[in-house]
Amino acid sequence: MAQQAILKKPVRWHIAVFLAPAVLVYTAIMIIPLFGTLQLSLFREVEAGTIYVGLQNFRELLTDPHWSQSFWNALWNNTWFFIIHMLVQNPIGILLAAILSNPKLRMRAFYRTAIFVPTILSFVIVGFVWKLILSPIWGVAPNLLDLVGLKFLFAPWLGKEEYALTTLALVSVWQFVGIPMMLIYAALLSIPDEILEAAECDGVTGMAQFWKIKLPLVLPAIGIISILTFVGNFNAFDLIYSAQGALAGPNFSTDILGTFLYRTFFGFQLQLGDTHMGATIASMMFFIILTGVSLYLFVIQRRMQRYQF
């Protein structure tokens, strides 16, 4: 005991020293701006200068008809954007991973790379290329549909209020489907062969094996993907901005929180930037994401069963 007490005594400087660079950088570029934003949202510019208004900005954002209409519209659009990703991107990602992990499939490396490549493309390129593909004037989409006799299905999707957001969500799915695929693929590969062999001995093969053995084992990875998708979607901005501009047309039907924030904070055309309302929106985005992530951490992740190999 006495010996241990002596051993504990020296201050373990190295911990602080090793942590310092990361902590300093993270504080300087993340924590301070975050609190700066929160602080900005509590003030307002009036003729006499900047005054503290408490939660007045938030109240206005949520209740004033002109702000709240835009806000709820953006929030709902954002939610729909997320729903599409959850319903389309993640199942397809899992499916692709399951197919790729089949050892009998040839040219696996090629498919893996090909599906992953769009992920590393810039949003600007993706937005621009898809805008061209879907253009009713120069695009290849109408001709391609014509080749298979489905021309009647073509519509100027990006220009119609009812389709534009879904179209952009699917473009985003196309771009990012590689991420869930890779993560699930890695999780699937890490399942020990013994378990699969044991399953086979018990007569669990093929689809049944996927549903009963593999899927439960990759569930934690799916959880991580969901949370990544959630955070990514509610922070999204680039694709909408590059494809539809800051006004997120047609008629604000593709306006998500990110574009709404951009317009408010920096201003657009004749609209002057309003840093305080902009910061209020940014804070709301932060709270929404914080709530979502906390819900996941405290409610879902704790109940998830983990298997140790």
Binding site: K131, L134, S135, P136, I137, W138, A155, P156, W157, L158, G159, K160, P250
Partner: peptide
């Protein structure tokens, strides 16, 4: 206006 003017941009 042309076909699909809803998605026709300014440069178009």
């Amino acid at each position: 206006l042309g076909d699909g003017f809803e998605a026709q941009s300014y440069p178009d």
